[in-house]
Amino acid sequence: MPSETPQAEVGPTGCPHRSGPHSAKGSLEKGSPEDKEAKEPLWIRPDAPSRCTWQLGRPASESPHHHTAPAKSPKILPDILKKIGDTPMVRINKIGKKFGLKCELLAKCEFFNAGGSVKDRISLRMIEDAERDGTLKPGDTIIEPTSGNTGIGLALAAAVRGYRCIIVMPEKMSSEKVDVLRALGAEIVRTPTNARFDSPESHVGVAWRLKNEIPNSHILDQYRNASNPLAHYDTTADEILQQCDGKLDMLVASVGTGGTITGIARKLKEKCPGCRIIGVDPEGSILAEPEELNQTEQTTYEVEGIGYDFIPTVLDRTVVDKWFKSNDEEAFTFARMLIAQEGLLCGGSAGSTVAVAVKAAQELQEGQRCVVILPDSVRNYMTKFLSDRWMLQKGFLKEEDLTEKKPWWWHLRVQELGLSAPLTVLPTITCGHTIEILREKGFDQAPVVDEAGVILGMVTLGNMLSSLLAGKVQPSDQVGKVIYKQFKQIRLTDTLGRLSHILEMDHFALVV
């Protein structure tokens, strides 16, 4: 994948999101292997301009796509893939009243899908469409860049269908997702969380590099694949309309690839034109409109599966009536509230959605109805927002919020430890010299600072030695090549209790 991002070429006709291997024109390309080798690009942008032909009021008969309808489940399912879809609609009884809503608040519980998330729908649909058009064949390999849930859905379907599955996901995604993927037989590649989507090191860039190296491999490409919004247009939206008897006044959905909100909203605009569509985008993402909503100094966020630093091709923002931004604290607070007060075992993005819903639905009156999409299960986040310690460490809970008995030293300040200034190293000294210094002084790690004293990161003896043994660096290389740029900081005025929580999850903390 090139470091400079080429513009994806656009073909003359058809839909841009065809499933299957992508040609340089962004659509299915038939021909000899030699032709494909000559024409197939190194990668295709996940934010390529959409060429979708959908228009409100256009006859369904003019759609270029294969459409399906929700099917009634048999008493005995032939395999677990038949437990994807037909998820329950559940009334939220307490939270709406707590925040003064007059309307009825309903939750579409997508964590009841077989793999635990709304992404099971698009995973199965992308595979079925690729099999139907002859792209996927027995023994082929599926590769997908994902925040985890699409990966789980694909790995689940691949396990049943017999495909090899490789999932490329950023490091910030939970260990629970990784464990589930491994249990399903998927191979996992992790990428830096802070890598831009168009960087060769991003999950998108690495996935395309693997595709170019592995024979008979395919990126189904949830960011561009029409099967993504079509899955929701054909099934999720129809289920909502049936469950609500066609009567709903507002739908609120958090947005990642945009397939969920695009597919549902398009069908609702056709069948229930008075329904307002509300999009939820986390602070630090750029999906919301108008652009002024996205202006923030924050560039990272903890909530998973929603928000991006690019506009995915499948996201149709014209069908969203209003956007709201959400933050991590309210997302996790509301997710825990949904679990504790409503018994809905949902993930953090569901918290984002409901946090926005109780604001947006203030305009609705008694007798009206708001539906929220709860995308995934708490299963993926047992060591994250479900953990009091994690919430404390991230600053989303305060010590006084917890009532468990603490040891005698818990409320003492870090400054009472009488710490001395640490050994520091410059980023320009060599790895070999740094190892000598650390061994001589008896230290395992040291902060790396520039000549102005600005902290650049941390270097550890173990990481340097393993990097040297693996051949990633040489003793003569500058130590700046092996620094940890993500590390926890703590102030002298913070409590030892807070430091204790940090050290339970990290090997060190830097006192500043």
Rank of each mutant, 00 (worst) to 15 (best):
Pro2Val: 08
Ser3Gly: 11
Glu4Phe: 05
Pro6Ala: 08
Ala8Ser: 01
Val10Asn: 14
Thr13Asn: 12
Arg18Leu: 08
Arg18Ala: 13
Ser19Pro: 11
Gly20Ile: 12
Gly20Asn: 08
Gly20Cys: 01
Pro21Ala: 09
Pro21Gln: 01
His22Leu: 08
Ser23Val: 05
Ser23Leu: 01
Ser23Glu: 15
Gly31Asp: 14
Ser32Lys: 04
Ser32Leu: 08
Ser32Glu: 12
Ser32Met: 01
Pro33Glu: 15
Pro33Cys: 07
Glu34Asn: 01
Asp35Lys: 05
Lys36Thr: 07
Glu37Leu: 13
Pro41Leu: 12
Leu42Lys: 04
Pro46Val: 07
Pro49Leu: 07
Thr53Pro: 01
Gly57Ser: 14
Arg58His: 14
Ala60Gly: 01
Ser61Pro: 14
Glu62Val: 07
His65Pro: 06
His65Met: 07
His66Pro: 07
His66Val: 10
His66Thr: 05
His67Lys: 12
Thr68Gly: 14
Pro70Tyr: 01
Pro70Val: 01
Lys72Trp: 01
Ser73Val: 11
Lys75Ile: 04
Ile80Cys: 15
Asp86Cys: 06
Thr87Ser: 07
Met89Leu: 14
Val90Cys: 15
Arg91Ala: 01
Arg91Gly: 12
Asn93His: 06
Ile95His: 01
Gly96Ser: 15
Lys98Ser: 12
Lys98Cys: 06
Phe99Ile: 11
Phe99Trp: 10
Gly100Arg: 05
Leu101Gly: 04
Lys102Cys: 07
Lys102Gly: 01
Cys103Val: 09
Glu104Pro: 03
Ala107Trp: 11
Cys109Lys: 01
Phe111Leu: 08
Asn113Tyr: 05
Gly115Ser: 07
Arg121Ile: 05
Ser123Thr: 06
Arg125Gly: 07
Asp129Phe: 06
Asp129Gln: 13
Ala130Phe: 07
Ala130Lys: 01
Ala130Val: 08
Glu131Asn: 14
Glu131Arg: 01
Gly134Arg: 14
Gly134Asp: 14
Thr135His: 04
Thr135Ser: 01
Lys137Pro: 01
Pro138Ile: 01
Pro138Lys: 14
Asp140Phe: 08
Thr141Leu: 13
Ile142Ala: 04
Ile142Pro: 05
Ile143Pro: 01
Gly148Ser: 01
Thr150Val: 05
Ile152Arg: 01
Ala158Arg: 01
Ala159Thr: 12
Arg161Cys: 13
Arg164Gly: 01
Met169Leu: 11
Glu171Val: 14
Glu171Met: 12
Lys172His: 06
Met173His: 06
Ser174Leu: 04
Ser175Tyr: 14
Lys177Val: 01
Lys177Pro: 01
Arg182Ala: 01
Ala183Gly: 14
Ala183Gln: 14
Ala183Leu: 05
Gly185Ser: 05
Gly185Glu: 09
Glu187Cys: 10
Glu187Phe: 01
Arg190Thr: 08
Thr193Ile: 09
Arg196Ser: 08
Arg196Asp: 01
Arg196Tyr: 09
Phe197Val: 04
Asp198Val: 01
Asp198Cys: 10
Ser199Val: 04
Ser199Leu: 08
His203Lys: 04
Val204Thr: 11
Gly205Trp: 13
Val206Trp: 04
Val206Asn: 04
Ala207Val: 01
Trp208Arg: 07
Arg209Trp: 08
Lys211His: 01
Glu213Met: 14
Ser217Pro: 08
His218Phe: 12
Ile219Asn: 07
Leu220Phe: 04
Asp221Thr: 06
Gln222Ile: 04
Asn225Tyr: 01
Ala226Thr: 09
Ser227Arg: 07
Ser227Leu: 04
Ala231Asn: 04
Asp234Met: 15
Thr235Pro: 01
Thr236Phe: 11
Glu239Leu: 01
Leu241Asp: 05
Leu241Cys: 07
Gln243Ile: 01
Gln243Arg: 09
Gln243Ser: 06
Asp245Arg: 01
Leu248Thr: 10
Asp249Val: 03
Asp249Leu: 01
Met250Thr: 05
Leu251Thr: 01
Val255Ser: 01
Val255Asp: 05
Thr262Trp: 04
Thr262Asn: 09
Gly263Ala: 01
Lys267Gly: 10
Lys269Cys: 11
Lys271Thr: 11
Lys271Ser: 12
Cys275Leu: 06
Arg276Phe: 09
